[in-house]
Design a binder for these strands. Structure first.
Lengths: 164, 164
DNA sequence: CAGACGAATCTAGCATTGCTAGGCTAGGGG
DNA sequence: CCCCTAGCCTAGCAATGCTAGATTCGTCTG
């Protein structure tokens, strides 16, 4: 998993081949299939889950006066500095299933942390979902240079204003 | 391009192989490489561009009293009903480059249409960017069942409220 | 202590992928 | 009548994900 993360971060997921991984860890390919019987997709899914766990810690760690801006900044920085990992979490055909009984707990806890930041009250869940959607949208559009990098802080401030 | 769209919409982009496309149009593979010298990625990029053009029309066509909700609903419906196309536009390693001198005009015009919906004034560009980011985030999180489908209309109303 | 067993690993190969080199055929110009 | 170009195809290459079968080695049994 560490090897997959490293290669994906530097050369993209298309460079994460089973042969490459096997060479990186000093074993032959079949060994990978004993630890991950479903093959490459399962490896990617495992990396994605570790990413959700890491992101959850990050989001949960923001309890400031202006928690909204703090959280938004942390989220976007995470997505930018771990672009390959973030891709695996949100944009790879993955084995991770959501809204199902088999949804791994890592995937739920991150959202719960967001709800906590936004506070309770009526419609709090919808607002938390939209806050998350906003952050995700900004993260990927910034990555693809569809949003100008210069106004990053301005965007964060506006997001906090919208949701405050 | 039509064949690629059809196959992608029904079986996903991984089923869109060059051999499959060649068979679908009744020609051999090399013919495809004469029309799209860069191969499969160029075909996907072309499909994506046509998607941007289609999305632009849709967004530009909303001039109601509550244009915000109207636009949001149109955008999300488009993303849902053309999931394969939307994937090509936003989540495929593509040849389309943004924020560059070679950015195809289709990619810019859609954003301009969004700006028009949100109105002018100071900070209008940032607000339009965030509106777009919000819609994109909701679109992909809904697709992955990370957001409950039942509250779709509730979400749209809340988005319109946030940006009004 | 000999032999059997099971876990761990490897070599070698399959089918499929994107892509390309080279050859074939038809139709118009010298 | 010959040649050239445009258009197309057959055949093949390297790389991919994955797997069947063989090999090695330590441990447990009789």
């Amino acid at each position: 998993m560490a090897a997959a993360r490293t290669i994906a971060e530097t050369e993209g997921w298309s460079a994460v081949t089973v042969r490459r991984l096997a060479a990186a860890i000093g074993y032959s390919q079949p060994v990978l299939y004993q630890h991950f019987p479903r093959g490459r997709p399962e490896i990617i899914a495992a990396v994605a889950r570790s990413g959700f766990a890491q992101l959850e810690e990050l989001v949960a760690g923001a309890d400031d006066p202006d928690a909204l801006a703090q959280t938004a900044r942390a989220y976007l920085t995470f997505a930018r500095e771990h672009a390959g990992l973030y891709t695996a979490m949100f944009e790879m055909p993955s084995l991770n299933r959501f809204a199902s009984s088999q949804t791994p707990p890592e995937l739920r806890r991150g959202f719960d942390a967001l709800v906590a930041v936004l506070g309770r009250g009526p419609g709090a869940d919808t607002r938390a979902e939209l806050f998350w959607s906003m952050l995700h949208g900004v993260a990927v559009l910034e990555r693809d240079r569809r949003l100008p990098a210069a106004q990053r802080e301005e965007r964060i401030a506006e997001i906090a204003r919208l949701f405050s």
